[in-house]
């Protein structure tokens, strides 16, 4: 599975379009990470807990995107974009979307 935020996969030709595929995940922060971040904000520095959460959220969103594209019979997703939104207090969404295509 090729995933790219370009409009094509370089060096390959798009032979079929399958339409938009999306992958989204809504996550809540955990309270221990929150407390850690508040303590950390006294002296500053990287909030490792939040960074880890960001990475795992992104992974899940991309997995769902890939699964959807696979189900359509595509072998690549092009023009991937990210959007974020806050759904409710303490819960936020990472949304990845792109176009499922067949390349060769």
């Amino acid at each position: 599975m090729f995933i790219s935020n370009l409009e094509t996969i370089p060096g390959m030709k798009i032979v079929e379009h399958y339409g938009l595929v999306t992958g989204s995940t809504v996550r809540a922060r955990n309270v221990f990470v929150d407390i850690g971040a508040m303590l950390k904000s006294l002296w500053g520095g990287e909030l490792k807990g939040y960074t880890k959460l960001l990475y795992s959220t992104n992974e899940v969103a991309l997995q769902r995107l890939e699964a959807q594209a696979e189900a359509m019979g595509a072998n690549a997703v092009v023009n991937v974009r990210y959007a974020t939104s806050s759904v409710a207090l303490g819960a936020s969404e990472l949304y990845a979307y792109g176009t499922a295509v067949s390349v060769e």
């Binding site: 996969i9 370089p10 060096g11 006294l42 990287e46």
Partner: peptide
């Protein structure tokens, strides 16, 4: 735009993230 002079072996999406806090 997809035209390359050389043959492409691999294409992948790479993501980097960081969250940094300021101090008191």
């Amino acid at each position: 735009k997809g035209e390359t002079r050389k043959a492409v072996q691999e294409v992948r999406l790479v993501v980097g993230m960081a969250s940094i806090s300021t101090d008191f």
